[in-house]
Write a protein that binds this DNA or RNA. Structure first.
Lengths: 212, 212
DNA sequence: ACCTGAACACCGTTCAAGT
DNA sequence: ACCTGAACACCGTTCAAGT
């Protein structure tokens, strides 16, 4: 019996596959992605994907790459270094919050692509230009990127998030957790403010090093 | 035919199961843990585990809990606040490096247990005692914990690690990645020093806020 | 060159059956 | 009360076969 496809079948392509995978993961999360479901989404058997992508792992790398390429960081020298670093950090945060699986992906299967390395190189260039020597530029980069990734991860899943379910704290006795429960009851800060607070503490700490 | 067990079979217990799971994960990583393999390790069918643990997810929570309980943080007031925070951060780093899957676990299935919350409460107490108001104590906590988690994650899988495989950088053209390749060739810092560098920048930034 | 069917070697979990 | 066998509904990937 002839099967009528809802959408006429376009040629399968690595790019189309990655795009479809990204949609699937955006909608159902990382564990909602399987080669079989992805094939179904594209109107094709799972095995056909292997003609264009060597493995599921490579597919995940493609997703990471596509997202990291969306992070904006401007060439060195366009703006004051701290402003440029701040805006790049915010850009990464926005992308990561729109695709909440990104931080997990980055931590789990570190991308070794030019796209990912471009962020490192740009940041190092900005920090060198700001006056840090090569070793301190690396340390400053690791400090900044460490904070940004960790802060995003906490914003997504950590304790002390606003609008967190009361059930998460239900078992805690007030006598043992006075400070924590006090904050939960009084209400937690806007996470964007908390993010900027941390970023500013770090940036002014680094600026103080340059001044000295 | 009677089967002779290598080890006489001890009674199955939630605690024994979690301990065995921890060993399995330490040796084979997170994806090396399956209910079937864990059962085999304990001389039992996979399904027997469900008499003591409701799900694999709960088992992972048990592992996270056991590891977080190893992190040392002393009661408020014993030492100068910045010293205590620094030593707790280092303690978490040591535990996390000994069990490299811990940061993934914490980011992926955030623990809502008293053990995990104990770290939050202790840190908040120390920061409040140091002089931060309740809101800033939360911000300072998020900054510190964000940095520690992110820095560990980068130390485990990020770029600019010492002894990283040269293949990771092989495709990068020198003209596009001068700063990155320069650092790779000159050699990367001891990661413990880099960790302490970042921690100290943050701690002195926070101290400056108290001073003002 | 690209797609497929069948198969392999796995998963977590349910459930009725055994002791 | 605890353990098990069989089964369900999945996985990623290989490979020979088709077009």
């Amino acid at each position: 019996l002839p099967v009528i496809h809802a959408q006429p079948r376009a040629r399968l392509t690595r790019e189309r596959i990655v795009r479809a995978a990204l949609e699937l993961v955006d909608e159902h999360g990382l564990e909602g992605l399987s080669m079989r479901k992805l094939g179904a989404e594209l109107g094709v058997e799972a095995m056909s994907l292997y003609n264009h992508v060597p493995s599921k792992a490579a597919l995940l790398d493609g997703i990471t790459d596509a997202l990291l390429s969306q992070v904006e960081i401007h060439p060195v020298g366009e703006r004051e270094w701290a402003d440029e670093i701040r805006s790049a950090a915010r850009s990464l945060r926005r992308v990561a919050l729109s695709h909440p699986y990104l931080v997990t992906l980055v931590a789990t299967r570190p991308p070794r692509t030019a796209t990912a390395m471009r962020l490192v190189e740009s940041a190092l260039a900005i920090l060198r230009h700001a006056g840090f020597d090569p070793e301190d530029a690396v340390r400053a980069y690791l400090l900044l990127m460490g904070y940004v990734l960790g802060a995003i991860s906490q914003e997504l899943t950590g304790p002390l998030r606003p609008r967190q379910q009361a059930a998460d704290y239900a078992d805690l006795r007030r006598e043992h957790f006075p400070n924590l429960l006090d904050r939960v009851e009084q209400g937690i800060d806007d996470p964007e403010r908390a993010f900027d607070f941390g970023l500013d503490v770090i940036l002014s700490g680094l600026a103080a090093m340059l001044g000295g």
